[in-house]
Design a protein around this nucleic acid. Structure first.
Lengths: 338, 338
DNA sequence: GCGTTTTACGTAAACGTTTACGTAATTCCC
DNA sequence: GGGAATTACGTAAACGTTTACGTAAAACGC
């Protein structure tokens, strides 16, 4: 259907080897034949077949990216970075939406294996043994983004969640707050759950502030609804709370929404700091002060890391902790005794 | 490296043809050899090579999706739907972030052509002649989502923007509003720009309300900042405006933010209706009343349409207008004379 | 001007499948 | 029980490339 290298060769009266060499910029032909062949390519509209290339080169110039939730705002930004880096490195990216399901994840990994992708980016989830085994079978580089693995030695790109939570809490303390609550994740979540709660606790303790179980409302998810439902519950246990650290922006905004409904003014009566710095953080009112994860950058960096592992620039990738910053907007105020 | 069909054949003492038949569920072997071969497959951990398959079948089981902005909230939701449909149909999806650049778009199309994708989904942008030529060269089905083309005959999946805008405006009118402004897109945008402004105008005229150029503030983009900057300008020209239709949720929320800063209460003093029903629409405060586009559904539908075109279930796809609804939240109130 | 190196190609194998075709053995029909 | 139809395979070509190897001609060195 499409013209092949053979058609070009015939049209230009040379061998397919010569055409191949010219197409790939290898040496071994005169300037004259090069022109002739290029004209034939132009005339026939020849496009090399990446499939055939892949078969012989054992390189598909394609990577796979697995997200628990492609349409999540966190994933989308990371994806943009990954795609950008991949494209710059000459790779295409296949997206996989695992919906946090182990079965689906395995199915996708098998698919990526059959498709012979050259590498994998695994985002925002814990690496189960099952997954790791497939990684090993596949013998392609893998880099984790926005997650890490304690059990397995896989390079990651992420921010230090403990530090982020610690700093966020310190920030509230510096603003004069004494009674600070947290809307957190789950004890079962080693990525965004535990470390953020530990960072929070540590900051309180370091500053001689009280910390009890009542200071944290845990949640299974990190969504708007989780935050919205958590605020009233947290306020019940911690009525004189003046500041709140939420383990995600969505939860922070959910809490903000609940506060509005309860007639609690933000930040005058309740200061709120989030975590992530999603696009919505600057769109809500009051604009959300939050711990900024450089999501697009993280995607970009993990993408670059992966391609450099694939093309063999480096043998072992060095994991990277990305810098976070606290971006100050309007949801946190100084605490003043009334 | 990985075991091939040959290894399996040798291990099971049969020919590669037999292995192939068994793997693909074709007839032509005894129950006995089937078991034997399956054991060999298991023992060696054989995975068929999709690249080699693609070469001979001329099918890669892969589609390409082009977005102007992958990380946009609109794109992400559409992408989720597309990915879901594709996966159900046995296809993988390669994402491409065109950043609305013609050059990049062409580069991506060429890449998808070389990679021999089986079909293309083209989202949210106008189809330029250049693109259409490549579509034709590629000889693969294309479906448009969240866009359409007047010049070229390509199947699309979208909502009727004129109607959506018309209904949104009617809704405000039913609420008793007489002076209604709009924050719109650009006259150069035939997709989301012109029809939404026309729908707005038509609704006003149908109801005997005044419409002038001052009723619409046009914008190059549809982002938060566009909305935020537009509100003051619009208010200057239309000081007694009591309701506002924004051509996107982001702009609506931008306007809401500006209103907060100007001390204008929403919805008591200014009602706002958006367009899209992004996830943020229910997260802002007050929650945004908006025209809901079934984004995920649109993605899903376009994905299904594309696979059915690829596998030849249908020859010609019928374009589909998806139903929109107005989801009522808290940003619109009844107008009461003061 | 003769041997040696270099240049400019062409030939053919290889990548891992699918599948048309061939063939021997089995089953079937009467 | 003998010919026809069926079953259960195997052989080899094909898909569109890349690339190792071979070779004739040209260029070079002295």
């Amino acid at each position: 259907m499409n013209p092949t290298i053979k058609d070009v060769a015939k049209h230009a009266n040379v061998s397919i080897a010569t055409v191949s060499r010219i197409v790939n910029g290898l040496p071994g032909y005169s300037e004259e034949t090069k022109k002739k062949v290029q004209q034939s390519i132009e005339a026939l509209g020849y496009q090399p077949n990446a499939i055939a290339r892949g078969l012989i080169n054992k390189r598909t110039q394609t990577i796979g990216v697995l997200f628990p939730d492609v349409s999540g705002m966190l994933s989308s930004e990371v994806l943009e970075g990954v795609e950008n880096a991949a494209h710059d490195g000459g790779f295409s990216v296949i997206v996989c939406n695992t919906t946090s399901s182990g079965k689906r994840t395995v199915k996708y990994l098998r698919l990526l294996q059959e498709k012979r992708v050259d590498g994998i980016i695994f985002a925002s989830e814990d690496v189960k043994e099952e997954y790791y085994k497939i990684f090993q079978e596949m013998k392609v580089p893998v880099v984790l983004v926005s997650t890490a693995s304690s059990k397995y030695d896989l390079p990651f790109v992420r921010v230090n969640d403990f530090d982020g939570a610690f700093q966020a809490t310190e920030y509230l303390i510096q603003k004069g707050h004494k009674v600070i609550g947290m809307i957190g994740g789950s004890d079962e979540d080693p990525i965004a759950g535990v470390p953020r709660m530990q960072g929070f606790q540590k900051a309180l303790e370091n500053n001689g502030l009280s910390f009890t179980n009542s200071h944290i409302k845990k949640n299974e998810g990190y969504r708007f609804q989780n935050g919205k439902e958590s605020l009233p519950l947290l306020l019940k246990k911690l009525p004189d709370m003046t500041a709140l650290f939420a383990a995600s922006d969505e939860m922070a905004i959910g809490a903000m929404s609940a506060a509005h409904e309860l007639g609690i003014r933000v930040p005058e009566e309740l200061s709120i700091i989030g975590y992530d710095n999603l696009k919505i953080a600057e769109m809500c009112y009051p604009a959300l002060t939050t711990v900024s994860q450089p999501l697009k950058d993280m995607g970009q960096t993990s993408g670059e890391m992966l391609v450099s592992l694939i093309i063999g620039e480096q043998q072992e990738a060095k994991s990277r902790y990305m810098p976070f910053t606290i971006v100050e907007r309007q949801s946190v105020s100084n605490f003043r005794d009334k």
